[in-house]
Each structure stands twice: as structure tokens, then as C-alpha cells.
């Protein structure tokens, strides 16, 4: 097997599904997925809060799993399916997670919120009926400096309940 070695700043064409739509773009091989999402795709809802993979502000769902998009190269997402905060609502209807965060005051400055909601999305997919303990663990890779988490936990509880009772939100979307 011959390894293909690209220089770090060589450009590569990418094609992927983003929030249900086919998108193409160009990225340097070293470009982080979060920069591709924000600067090439123009979806600035995904944030950057650190450079050590600690804060989770950049969390998106890639191929059905939550990832920290600052810790993934854009090229690794090639051909994949990506869900960002901008894709949560459907046909003008807020996703129950968004509703929960709004209803329960799960955000203040809003900077951590998109990442937090995407982590919650992943959690609720795996575990539709989490305990408080499980929610706290599920979002432990996401830092929030404003809320003290209590209301985020309540927001995710609210969403879990909503999602269980409303099957129209189940499956698909990404």
C-alpha cells in the first residue's frame, strides 16, 4: 500500500451531506472540521472555545455520533453526513432539545449552547430516558461557564420527555 502524502496546505475537494443537503467545498488537508464548517460552509453556529479539545463548544454530529469538530480534520468528514445546530429545527419547528433549552433557561451567553445541544442530541439517541446522573455524564465533555448546569440538565430532561412522546422526531434528520 502506498501512502499518499499531501503537503499540509494542499487543497482537497470535499463533498458531504450537511443538515440533509449535499454540500461541496475545498479545504487544506490540515484544516480542522470546525473551520471548514464555520468558514467554508458559513455555518457559524458551531463555536470554538479552546484549542485542547476540552470545551465541546464545537460539538457536531458526524455520521450519527457526536464529535468535537476541532479534533477532526475536514478531510475526515469527506463523504460523510454532518448535523450542526443549524439543522436541528425541522420545517420551522424547533427541535425538542432547542425547545427545552429555551423553556428551562438552559443558556445564558449562548456560546456553549450549540455544542451542548448536539451533545444532548447524541445522548438522547443512545439513551432516550436518561437519569440526571446520566445526563450529567453525557455532557461532561462540554463546558458551560454561565449556567451552573442545573438548568441544562432540566432542559435535556424536558427534551427527552418530549422526544419520547412525539415519534415524529425519531430517526432521520441527519
Amino acid at each position: 500500500m502506498t501512502a499518499l502524502i499531501y503537503p499540509a496546505d494542499a487543497k482537497v475537494g470535499l463533498e458531504l451531506t450537511v443538515n440533509g443537503e449535499r454540500r461541496v467545498g475545498e479545504a487544506e488537508t490540515r484544516m480542522l472540521l470546525v473551520h471548514f464548517i464555520r468558514e467554508v460552509l458559513g455555518l457559524t453556529g458551531t463555536h470554538v472555545g479552546c484549542d485542547t479539545s476540552n470545551c465541546g463548544a464545537c460539538t457536531v454530529v458526524l455520521n450519527g455520533r457526536a464529535v468535537k469538530s476541532c479534533t477532526v480534520f475536514a478531510v475526515q468528514a469527506n463523504g460523510g453526513s454532518l448535523l450542526t445546530v443549524e439543522g436541528l429545527a425541522r420545517k420551522g419547528r424547533l427541535h425538542p432539545i432547542q425547545e427545552g433549552f429555551w423553556e428551562k433557561h438552559g443558556l445564558q451567553c449562548g456560546y456553549c449552547t450549540p455544542g451542548m445541544m448536539m451533545a444532548a442530541y447524541d445522548l438522547l439517541q443512545k439513551n432516550p430516558n436518561p437519569t440526571e446522573e446520566e445526563i450529567r455524564r453525557g455532557i461532561s465533555g462540554n463546558l458551560c461557564r454561565c449556567t451552573g448546569y442545573v438548568k441544562i440538565v432540566e432542559a435535556i430532561h424536558y427534551a427527552a420527555q418530549k422526544l419520547r412522546s412525539d415519534p415524529s422526531w425519531r430517526s432521520g434528520g441527519d
Binding site: T44, G45, H47, T84, E86, E103, L107, T113, M117
Partner: peptide, 21 residues
Amino acid sequence: VKRKEDVRFIQGRGTYVDDIS
């Protein structure tokens, strides 16, 4: 009452400095 500003934040439509291009 629920916060007015949240409508944009929960949809990824806030405008922070790094979002300005």
C-alpha cells in the same frame, strides 16, 4: 418569561465576534 434573545442562540444564529467576516 422565556428570554427573547434565546431565539437566535438556540438556532446557532447569534453573532459573536468570530462569526463576523
